[in-house]
Amino acid sequence: MIAALLDLLGALLLLVGSVFMLLGGLGLVRMPDVFNRIQAGTKTTTLGTLLTLSGVGLLQPDWALKLLLIGLFILFTNPLSAQVLARAAHRIGLRKTPLTRVDRLAEDTGEDA
């Protein structure tokens, strides 16, 4: 009984994780410029994958340790790649959406150069 409940909970977590990933995909399509798209892509996929991992962990408790490691790796690598990409995108001066209100980094590097 308990095991069946845990299974159900795991499947629900899996479902919620997929919903977040879907939202990330939607954000990727709808957001106006690169930086906003990076935001949408990184946050949602990180949480979505973490939820998926915990869901699978509930479905198959034997795999828990390895799933935990995958989650840790993703927590460290995902924001790092997002940051490196954002830095590169800013350096090559990609067009930002006209909605952008302020860009302190461009101001500062403009002064330096």
Binding site: G24, L28, V34, G41, T45, T49, L85, I92, L94
Partner: peptide
Amino acid sequence: LLALWRFLQGPTAADRVVAFDVLTIVSIT
């Protein structure tokens, strides 16, 4: 599929790289 659409669509290289990132992580799922 949504991320793939963004990858096919572009418009800039950086957009495609973002889509690439998302695609690889969805592949983990």
